[in-house]
Design a protein around this nucleic acid. Structure first.
Lengths: 110, 110
DNA sequence: TTCTCATTTGGCAAATTAACCAAATAAAAA
DNA sequence: TTTTTATTTGGTTAATTTGCCAAATGAGAA
């Protein structure tokens, strides 16, 4: 069995890969509030315009965001809303893990 | 603003990165049914034992799975259960996207 | 039409990840 | 104790991803 031969597993992996970059996650976080112009990302991120554009393309191709051109500007919006719930859950787990590490350290100290 | 400096965003990205590999997604799918011995993965996957072991380590370090040693064997189990809901949602989106592509093609043909 | 502004695309070097083989560990069986 | 079995670790090479620069596109303004 090689999971790379399974189309559904492969496509699902692509979606996760698209999300798994700090800049792209930050973009998703911002889009949770509503559509945002690319120009706003360019203003707020310390990265080349071209880099930001490529991150947006990755999200678009994975079906996570969509965009709309209005005049000279392009506005992106979040298409896959269920992602927000999952991010909350992941962050819950991250916090739990940190707390349990802390408890282990405290046990050693006592 | 550089999202790479944000600890929570970074840790969240690591979790997504850990999931975003076909073999690791397949492992997660299998673990949905309950704990599984590494030996079963070794039997069912066309990959070197060391490769499989490294995939399991990635999942463990991301806090997605946990393991227990019993005798000579090691059993892995799913720790972050909310992942299953999100995988379902992602697959729903993948199917929707395929359907809408199909509709676009059909419109062209008519 | 020409100019300017917003964004994307192409190309390349640097960084990261994956997969294999060989060797190491660790528990149980002989 | 030695051997066998299950799994992990180290190291190396190949493949993939990232990020920057420069150039291209495309829409509105002049």
């Amino acid at each position: 069995m090689n999971p790379k031969d399974n189309i559904l597993i492969n496509e699902t992996a692509k979606v996760f890969k698209a999300i798994s970059h700090p800049t792209r996650l930050w973009i998703i976080d911002q889009l949770a509030k509503g559509e945002i112009c690319v120009c706003v990302f360019n203003e707020n991120l310390d990265a080349d315009f071209s880099t930001i554009s490529k991150h947006l393309t990755v999200l678009k191709e994975a079906g996570i965001v969509d965009f709309e051109k209005r005049g000279k500007q392009v506005f992106y919006n979040l298409k896959m809303d269920c992602i927000l719930n999952f991010i909350l859950c992941v962050r819950g787990t991250i916090k739990d893990n940190i707390v349990s590490k802390l408890n282990q350290i405290e046990k050693l100290e006592v």
